[in-house]
Design a protein around this nucleic acid. Structure first.
Lengths: 199, 199
DNA sequence: TGACTAATTAGATGAATGACAAATTAGCGG
DNA sequence: CCGCTAATTTGTCATTCATCTAATTAGTCA
């Protein structure tokens, strides 16, 4: 049941300070001190709110020198906002949501364009939407719920493309996988949700 | 600032019981006793939750005999879920998002169909999407940020159509305007967002 | 009007939560 | 290793909130 996920997303946005944090981060990444300053609270409070936003995967973090810079996880923000509506209406009309036929064909075309007959990735698409489609195509081959070592992930990616480092980073960055203590796991969220809203 | 509105929407969905109520109501209207039974709580608790959901305009109520039947406000559920995302990204990419060319033409057609040469509204469209387009067309003539009295709003609407009461209600119901203490204000949210998802 | 049913209100209680100050940890640069 | 800076943790306090029970109100119907 992803009720918990939906609730935790809404809890995360159920506080004005946290929404303001997201609004600020929409202008670009920012570290804790700056956020504290702009919102008129102490750094400790920012840590507190950041934890909630992190729980809901709404933000990402990057360290530079002493400071930790927060930024938005655009995909999660967009897809989570729909998750509630999907959850509410889902069961009543009893069915998984399918992507529309048009998108499906578009996707197939992109895959044919970038993946060779023998399953190699010709190149990493630079256009975001296409890149996401390719990443999705790859990650679908992995097993839900299974925990992979970094080595296994590298091996897997190398069956597609030599630049496993870049691709591995993309998987994490776009949340196709989660990493924790060097262990990788596929994100079970509906994948189409990631690019469905892009132009 | 519609920050409050966004927060109150998310607060409303920030509790599992309330989400479950909405899920149940998606199957059809239901009265308090039945909801209490299904969720394993007392009627008093349902009243409590209903108040929160009502505050966020997520449900509607109808009395029949002794019972009050709750049902979903589908429109608000859908639009509120987007409001947060709009709010977050609004200022940063500092620009109105444009609707696609196809929708623009469709919209123009509808407007031509319902608005006469001299700017009168022939009739109120019954089809939701068309109605929203017409309402948008009208509200665009009003000034952002300005506060209007009810009298002013009535006068304004009467330049389009005699039934100002109905139209005024529609403006509020579909959140083209907010009303507080008899003062009306245009909702600065991107308007196309309201009908953009409708079939 | 009086009995019945459903909903609401009032009041109480325990849990969760937002905020802060103070102490601590983590990482950087000499 | 030492000092500096940014972040986190800890502990505390006041507030909010979900829930219940009991009392009250609202509305129906005979």
């Amino acid at each position: 049941m992803q009720l918990d996920k939906v609730v935790s997303y809404h809890k995360a946005l159920a506080d004005p300070k946290r929404v303001q944090i997201l609004i600020l981060l929409a202008q670009g990444e920012m570290n804790g001190q700056v956020l504290a300053e702009k919102l008129g609270v102490t750094p400790a409070t920012i840590t507190h709110h950041a934890a909630k936003l992190r729980e809901a995967s709404l933000i990402q973090e990057r360290r530079d020198k002493n400071a930790i810079y927060f930024s938005l996880d655009h995909y999660m923000i967009q897809s989570s906002s729909k998750a509630a509506v999907n959850l509410i209406y889902r069961k009543s009309e009893g069915g998984a949501q399918e992507m529309d036929e048009q998108q499906k064909q578009k996707r197939d075309g992109v895959i044919r364009n970038f993946i060779t007959q023998d399953g190699k990735l010709k190149s990493i698409p630079s256009q975001l939407k296409k890149k996401l489609m390719v990443l999705e195509h790859m990650v679908e081959k992995l097993e839900y719920g299974k925990k992979y070592s970094e080595k296994e992930i590298n091996e897997f990616i190398k069956t597609y493309h030599d630049d496993f480092a870049t691709l591995r980073r993309e998987f994490i960055m776009h949340q196709f996988m989660f990493r924790e203590d060097g262990i990788y796991e596929v994100n079970p969220q509906e994948m189409w949700a990631r690019w469905e809203t892009l132009s």
